[in-house]
Amino acid sequence: MKTFLIDDDDLGNYLTETLLRLEGFSDDIRTFQAAEEALQALLTQLNEKIPQIIFLDLNMPVMNGWQFMEALAPYETRLHGRCRIYILTSSLALTDMEKAKTYSLVAGLIHKPIDVEEIRAIRSQLEEERAQ
């Protein structure tokens, strides 16, 4: 399962990536420390293989998680059903949870650190959808 990890914190990226690999969630994981780079990578292969799952951090310099979502807005219909975005944040703020609901591309919000149960839940969700 093609997966993007977007977080300026390299320790966080390493942690998430290792857990995903240990769980056998994905063997195609790309990490980005800047949201701008991830956006560019996504848009250049829009017609080809886009990631099915994106884990997106919120608090990042230059382009934060919400700005990344805004930048994706024009491509929403083309991404819908092909790409699920999970907000992965250390923030516990309720406002972020409320805001996450306003984006149809956002499938959920996960508080760091991501754990095994959460990874398994995401996988089973995907499998259910695929079965339908």
Partner: peptide, 25 residues
């Protein structure tokens, strides 16, 4: 307060994650 909680929560979450990972490897 918001920023501090966020900045504290970042490394704290990582520490939790790595401690968890250590148990599993």
């Amino acid at each position: 307060a918001y920023i501090v909680s966020h900045n504290l929560r970042g490394p704290l979450a990582n520490a939790l994650g790595f401690a968890d990972l250590l148990q599993r490897t």
